[in-house]
């Protein structure tokens, strides 16, 4: 993945999460992965197109998702209902959009697809031929992994 793309995504994730949740955030070590990997239970996905193609996936457990959605709405949610899902989707949208805005300032043109959310047990994500950058984020509410897979249009 192009070096210039890494920072905008990491920075956007941190500034948005800090803003909406108002909690301590700790960054894990970034790494690359290309084999299929398990998804924790809730995955919000935003597609990217333009100079590049790829997607950003926000991966967390159901409990973490409920806690984040509760925090963002300022009310206690018991299950991951419509509102909860919409909240997580919006979070994914906000982070990706801010990253893309930053990249725009650097001169890269990206378009976003509307976010989608997947929930379920024992899910797995596989990107053949594109390696993904994993940004682990440790929140006081739980762990979230941001999984960015982008490649240049050659």
């Amino acid at each position: 993945m192009r070096v210039e793309y890494i920072n905008p995504f990491v920075e956007a994730a941190f500034s948005i999460l800090k803003e909406v949740l108002d909690t301590e955030i700790e960054r894990g070590e970034l790494y690359l992965k290309s084999t299929s990997q398990p998804v924790l239970g809730v995955a919000a996905i935003v597609g990217l197109a333009g100079d590049v193609e790829g997607r950003v996936l926000f991966d967390m457990t159901k409990d973490t998702a409920i806690a984040i959605a509760s925090g963002m709405n300022g009310e206690e949610l018991k299950t991951l209902d419509e509102l909860g899902k919409a909240t997580i989707t919006e979070l994914a949208n906000m982070i990706t959009a801010q990253a893309v805005t930053k990249l725009h300032e650097l001169g890269f043109k990206f378009d976003l697809t509307p976010p989608a959310i997947f929930t379920g047990d024992n899910m797995e994500v596989t990107d053949t031929e594109v390696e993904a950058l994993i940004v682990p984020v440790n929140l006081s509410l739980g762990k979230m992994e941001i999984n960015v897979a982008i490649r240049e249009r050659a």
Binding site: M1, R2, V3, E4, I6, L32, K33, S34, T128, E129, V130, E131, L133, R151, E152, A154
Partner: peptide, 15 residues
Amino acid sequence: ILFEYHDILNPNPFP
């Protein structure tokens, strides 16, 4: 030049 964070053991899309 295009600098990429890439593990050479993973597949790459270069022609």
